[in-house]
Amino acid sequence: MNIIEILNLVHEYRELDEEGNEAEALRAVDGVSLTVEEGEFIAILGHNGSGKSTLAKHVNALLTPTEGTVYLSGMNVAEHKPIWEVRREAGMIFQNPDNQIIGTSVEEDVAFGPENMGIPTEELLKRVEVSLEKAGMAAYRLHSPNKLSGGQKQRVAIAGMLAMRPKVILMDEPTAMLDPVGRKEVLETMHELNRQEGITVVFITHYMEEVVDADRIVVMKDGKLVMNGAPREVFSRLEELEECHLTAPEVTRLAAELKKAGLDLPDGVLSVDELVNALCRLK
């Protein structure tokens, strides 16, 4: 079943001049169509300003389309009322871990979403406990968010989403401001939730190494969707990627270089083990 359906989406940021007339219209998303199946882990890649964030913000109605329609679990996102029925279906994690934590303690922050949904207190307590457990942050329940590491803050934010019991979690460059340890923490948590809870994940990033385990990769360039396929397939098209101002992970590039030099290697090698095994077979 398609949980997200985006049809010919266009989004323009309009700039007004001093008289209030339209001075400039910037097309951030330019005619994108995309469907995401329930339970999928989909990664969106793209250079800075390629429109990937703007695209994602349409799914939970933070932005309304200039043209086109977005469906989430069958609801027309832009028209559905009340709007929080859409938002509790698709949670969103943002880039800056500091700017999305509202509560002054971890448990209060996790409770914020369901509190807004009017969930009764006993149920709230249960949801907070379960969500923190799933995000691996149960030990920090009463801590102040200010003292956590970046990766831990993002996991608190993830627990905050889980407490709303969403079907989809949209992640808008959640690892961009983290160190390698934090990035790994967040990524592993999301994969686990995807596998165990069946939550659909839309993961936006520009770290190539982070997407090799995704079910599917979508690449955006200047507001358009230009590539869409399994990681192996996308990463075997190195030239196209470079045109999108992106690259492939180091191992993939090494394998491609070796192949060019005459070694009989497969396309789109994704991991260290894969490359080592392939080379062993050549011996």
Binding site: N99, I102, E115, G118, T121
Partner: peptide, 25 residues
């Protein structure tokens, strides 16, 4: 910028004022 981010984060978590809000404690 932080205020803007925070407003987005709050909206994404279904915030719509104090009506019908419940409390953890």
């Amino acid at each position: 910028r932080r205020a803007d981010d925070l407003a987005n984060a709050m909206e994404a978590r279904c915030y719509h004022g104090g009506d019908d809000r419940t409390k953890l404690h």
